[in-house]
């Protein structure tokens, strides 16, 4: 574990040097990423400018949901999202994946955390400010248990997204060009920026049980606000566990069928 954390630290330093080589672009990208976060808050502001409630959620609660979503989004964008969605297919296409296999590291770890995006990490400081803003302006009293539950659910959300992306990314071993799946994944997780309570009937079932996008922000936020649903949490644990196992199997299967390209 210590070894892998150290490697992540080294990856971060190397990548910071690479990204800072294009300084104007780096700072503009950070500005753009921060603006994108604020646009989500602005979007909710405009919606609540025209309605007092959204699927039973008040603005202060949706603010929590939005920053929960932004926390998850920043985490995955900084770490594994682009590595698996875009850089892995690129490595496979150029035949550079062979080089990665020769390293004394778990190939999945290396493929997922090889490039730590410092642009996203830098812009994430805005998320910290938004959390500060939430606690000083909107948060009412909450229990320690709710907060712990919130963190655990957030963790399950991240495991769910990682497993899902590993399955998506594994397809690159056959299709080589899987960047479209990466974009698709981005758009799908953006579904999680709204409370899934806006969906009714079959769609509600879909986003809660079949493709539980609700785990990204809605479920943790509700737990934080004191609305718990223990049977659903049990389902979520089982679902995430099975999905993780499937993703591991799919990844190993893809690795076994890997035949080098270009090199």
């Amino acid at each position: 574990m210590k070894k892998y954390l150290k490697i992540i630290w080294i990856f971060s330093k190397v990548n910071l040097q690479n990204q800072m080589a294009y300084r104007p672009s780096f700072f503009l990208a950070v500005l753009g990423k921060a603006t994108r976060m604020l646009i989500l808050i602005l979007l909710f502001r405009v919606i609540y400018f025209n309605t007092p409630l959204l699927a039973g959620w008040e603005y202060k609660d949706v603010f929590l949901l939005a920053i929960t979503y932004l926390t998850v989004e920043s985490t995955i964008l900084t770490t594994f999202h682009r590595n698996l969605s875009y850089y892995l297919p690129d490595l496979l296409k150029k035949g550079d994946f062979d080089f990665l296999l020769t390293k004394p590291l778990n190939p999945l770890f290396y493929s997922s955390f090889r490039i730590i995006d410092l642009m996203d990490l830098t812009s994430s400081s805005l998320v910290i400010f938004l959390w500060y803003y939430y606690f000083t302006h909107y948060a009412s009293a909450f229990s320690f248990l709710s907060f712990i539950l919130y963190l655990i659910l957030l963790g399950f959300g991240l495991i769910f997204l990682f497993s899902l992306l590993v399955i998506f990314a594994s397809s690159a071993f056959w299709t080589i060009n899987a960047t479209g799946l990466g974009r698709f994944f981005e758009d799908i997780i953006r579904t999680g920026r709204f409370p899934t309570d806006v969906f009714k009937g079959a769609f509600s079932f879909l986003f809660l049980y079949v493709f539980p996008i609700a785990t990204i922000a809605t479920v943790p936020s509700k737990a934080f606000l004191g609305t718990t649903n223990w049977p659903y949490y049990v389902y979520l644990v089982v679902f995430t566990f099975i999905l993780t196992l499937i993703s591991k199997k799919v990844w190993n299967y893809a690795l076994k069928h890997y035949s080098s390209a270009s090199s």
Partner: peptide, 30 residues
Amino acid sequence: YRTNLFLEVIGGFVAQLVIIAVWFSIFRDL
């Protein structure tokens, strides 16, 4: 690379459907 383009477009399509669901919800609530 039509599959890639298709997935790019369908992702945007799903995102737009969610916004539509939001407005259905607003009109229903109000």
